[in-house]
Simulated scan of single mutants.
Amino acid sequence: MHCQPRLKHEVYIWSKNNQICLICDEATDTAHSICNFCETELPWLMDHCEVCALPLPMAGLTCGQCQRQPPTFKHVATPFTYSFPVDTLISRFKHQARWPLGHLLAHLLGQCLQDRYENAELTRPDCLFPVPMARRRLRERGYNQATMLARWLSQDLDIPCDERVLLRPHETVAQQDLDAKNRKSNLLKAFALAPGAAVKGLHLALVDDVLTTGATANSLARLLIDAGARQVDVYCLARTPKPGT
C-alpha cells in the first residue's frame, strides 16, 4: 500500500551541500541553488526611475510618466529587468509551479532589499501584502505566486506578511492581455479591503512578481492610502522596460 500522495510537480530537496544551479545545472557550493557565474550574468537592474524603477540611461532621475502623474505608491524596489533568463524563470515559476525558481528569485530580492535597508535607501515596512488573485483564477492555478513570494520574503526579512487584508472580489481580464490605457479601466473597483482591516498609519509594501505599467500596484496603493496607510511601496522580482526600448 502506497501512503505517499502522487505529486504532479517535481519535488526538490534544498540543502546547503552538493547544490545544483537551477539555471545552468552545474554543481555549485552556494547555499541557494545558483552558481556565482549565473548570478553575475542575471539582468540586474542598474540605472532606473527613482519612483517606479523604469530602466533609464542615467541614475538619480524620475521618468516622465512619474513626473506627469505621480503614482500613489512611493517606491518600487526590484533587482532585475524583465529579460532573459529572469523572464523565463518567472514564467516557469508562475505557470508551471516550479516553486524552487520562485524561492530562489525571492531570496535574491530579499538580499537586494536588505542591502537597501542597511544603506538607508529604503525604510523597512510594517507589513507585506501580496497582490491578491481573483477566486476563479486562484482555483484554476492552485496558488497565488505573489502570496508565495510574500511568505518567503517575510521569512528572509523578518517582516510580517498579511494575506487577508487585500481582496479581489471581481473577476477581470488578465492584465497582460491589455494595453496601458485598458489596464487602468480594467482595475476600476477590482480590489477591496477585508472588513475591519486596520492599515491606518502603517507603512506597507505590496509584493508581486512583475511590474509592467504599475496600474495594479497604483490601484492597490490608492485603496490603502485612502484607508489611512502612511506609505505604500512595491516589491517585485522584475521591472519591464519601456515598450519599444
Rank of each mutant, 00 (worst) to 15 (best):
A77K: 03
N182Q: 15
S33D: 15
A97F: 00
T62W: 06
K74S: 15
R183N: 09
D126Q: 11
L237V: 11
Q231A: 07
Q231K: 14
T62R: 12
K16F: 04
H107G: 13
L237R: 02
T245W: 14
A229E: 13
F80K: 05
A238G: 07
D29S: 14
H203V: 14
E163P: 02
P70L: 10
H107Q: 11
K200W: 08
T123I: 10
C161P: 00
L113A: 01
T147S: 10
T28W: 00
E171C: 11
T213R: 05
D25C: 05
R98V: 15
P79F: 00
A194T: 13
Q175H: 09
L167S: 01
N17V: 14
T212V: 05
T212S: 06
D209P: 00
T81L: 08
M58Q: 14
R116G: 05
C3S: 15
Q19N: 15
C3K: 06
L108Q: 01
L104F: 01
C52V: 13
V210F: 07
P130F: 02
Q145K: 10
D47P: 00
S219F: 08
P243A: 07
T40L: 14
A238Q: 08
C3R: 12
L202W: 08
S33M: 10
K242R: 15
R92C: 13
L166G: 02
N182C: 12
D226M: 06
D208S: 06
R68E: 12
L193P: 00
A190K: 09
L138F: 10
M133W: 03
I159R: 06
L223I: 08
G214W: 01
L237T: 00
L42K: 01
T212C: 10
T240K: 02
A217K: 06
G60E: 08
V207Q: 01
F80G: 04
Q65P: 03
L193F: 03
T172L: 11
W99I: 14
C24D: 03
N218Y: 12
R183K: 13
A205I: 09
P130R: 02
